[in-house]
Design a protein around this nucleic acid. Structure first.
Lengths: 339, 339
DNA sequence: CCAGAGGTTGACATCGATGTCAATCCGGTT
DNA sequence: AACCGGATTGACATCGATGTCAACCTCTGG
């Protein structure tokens, strides 16, 4: 696999390597006719600059790291995809680094990949973006980094969010507007920061509409399909029948849906069900589940934008960038008018 | 972010940079006491070799590329995870490259990332590992590459497989052993290579057991949940009731399961359902689905092993490595004795 | 016609590691 | 005591790009 170098291009175009470098990097101070000539040769020889040589001399790696706990989850996949596409647009590359906080030596691995790959920036996904030790490490190393949907306002890190509270608020309003009053709610796990914000939104909307929340119809789940199944049973056993159930995420909403089906309860005629996240299976289910589209890919893309923004890269002292992205209420078959 | 270089280590340990390099790379010809001393300094300074400098001089990048069509799918996530972990063990890094064959310019992107990152090897996931133009490109560039579960025996590429035919054969035998005779089968899409092999296995096992296949109970799906729902309706409408349905993948099996539930058919008492792939949701469903665990992560890890094997890297002329990995029949709640 | 400003261009050093090869060291022979 | 082979070690060139800076070119205005 013989490689074409910048010298080959230079020789063939009859200019110096430095000039070729200027053309490649779109710098000024090159006469148009020379620029064209060089570009022609580049195309002819199919020349690609050696990323390693470039990084070595320019002390930029054109590499971003995506640090993530569980790269297998659907959430991770969406985040990664968003980041990947944007990186490509920006001519960056993405290196995915799994971080297992519970295992010994994670600190070394993180440190190792950052310093050996000279990452230009890092994107840190939930839930590890909430770990203080991890964040300290990034701050200490001094690498620009952006958190995706962290639970609390970070001091020295950039962050990209969605408004969980408002989204849950909207979803609740949507149910109320359909005439629902007896609405059950399945909370997310305490460990997950968004859980609390979603519950707040639910309660706020209920309060504003003057609807009392039945505390026996508020149960805590753990974001798994199975807990949706189990809590669905409990909720459907309530003496005073609910007309709607709002689960804090889609997996649990799916569980409730299955439970309702098992009992022969018609959705949405007798019972409306709504979720949160818009995972792939919420579209695959039948009826499809009304949910909140969380801008996972967009948040990741925004993080890439921040990290690769030349302005940010220069004067990134002091202000940590913040960005809130819009969500979307997606109305589908699983919700309807209250019976 | 000041970086520690090999010179710093060398100076502090009182040896030459070259000797430090030898220690780092575990080469011979270093006296034990010097080796220890150097390692001590490395630890003290927390030194990490600069991957770019190393690649530039050694003309190895310690980078593998994972080329994949749809990085969002669950299949992709498993493959990626398997590759990622093994890469880490081998001190390699993984760069994920989405390839959209239907879009203009994919060829340039692939070429670009290979030559600019000087990838040491490539892993190509299905379904794009079946695209002749793509494979030609890799062969032409001359980069070592391994295909994951390709549909046909590639000429000049390595490949890692599982035995779809045998797995489907086992699953069918399992159902027959439970007393099932009237077994429905949902085929996969023709576009997906494994579909045919799975159907072969099914038919072979039925034939060996002397059970006639009812062609009206063999329907073609497209691997989606929805097609499972629809075809499930058709199968359960058959006049002569089936006692088991074997779907070519889990998503479709889940569809059948839901359909059965809607109709109040008890699983597995009245109907056994089995799938293929062992995706996450097949464990989340209730009852859990009997399925074939496809060694996705293992195949990816094996691909990494092949590509990073020093022996292979040297004398990789001529023989393209082949490897078949074992699958596993996972018996869960959705199958039982025939009624 | 020349000085000077500003735009172009290339020579050369440099980034941080590894490959090559010669120099050195060591214990055991003759 | 001189010699030898193999194990250690380091000097130096090198990988392929970019940063620096000086040289050069061209055009303008005095």
């Amino acid at each position: 696999m013989k490689m074409v170098t910048i010298k080959d291009v230079a020789a063939r175009a009859g200019v110096s390597p430095k000039t070729v470098s200027r053309v490649i990097n779109g710098e000024d101070h090159v006469r148009p006719e020379i620029r064209d000539a060089v570009q022609k040769v580049v195309a002819e020889l199919n020349y690609r600059p050696n990323a390693f040589a470039r990084s070595l001399s320019s002390s930029r790696s054109y590499l971003l790291g995506l640090f993530i706990d569980d790269p297998v989850s659907g959430y991770a996949a969406d985040v990664q995809h968003g980041a990947l596409l944007r990186c490509r647009e920006r001519s960056y590359h993405l290196v995915v680094e799994p971080v297992e906080l519970q295992r010994q030596g994670w600190e070394d691995h993180v440190r190792g990949s950052i310093s050996s790959l000279r990452l230009d920036g890092a994107i840190i996904a939930p839930p590890i973006c909430d770990d203080a030790r991890l964040l300290d490490l990034f701050v200490q190393i001094g690498i620009p980094h952006v958190l995706i949907a962290p639970s609390t306002e970070p001091k020295n890190s950039g962050a990209v969010w969605m408004d969980d509270r408002r989204a849950a608020h909207e979803m609740t309003q949507h149910l109320i507007a359909q005439g629902h009053r007896r609405i059950g709610f399945i909370q997310g796990p305490l460990s997950h920061s968004a859980s609390g914000r979603r519950e707040e939104g639910f309660r706020a909307a209920m309060g504003e509409a003057g609807v009392t929340v039945d505390e026996s119809a508020v149960l805590r789940g753990d974001f798994t399909f199975r807990s949706g199944l189990e809590l669905g049973e409990t909720l459907l056993d309530l003496p005073d029948a609910l007309t709607a159930i709002f689960a804090s995420n889609d997996d649990m909403a799916l569980g409730v849906l299955i439970t309702a089906m098992k009992r022969g309860i018609a959705v949405p005629e007798q019972l409306s069900i709504s979720g949160f996240d818009d995972v792939a299976t919420s579209r695959a289910a039948w009826p499809q589940i009304t949910t909140i589209r969380q801008p996972k890919a967009e948040m990741a893309a925004a993080a890439v934008d921040i990290l690769t923004d030349p302005g940010f890269r220069k004067q990134r002292v002091g202000q940590a960038p913040r960005l809130m992205l819009p969500h979307e209420l997606i109305t589908r078959g699983s919700t309807g008018k209250a019976p």
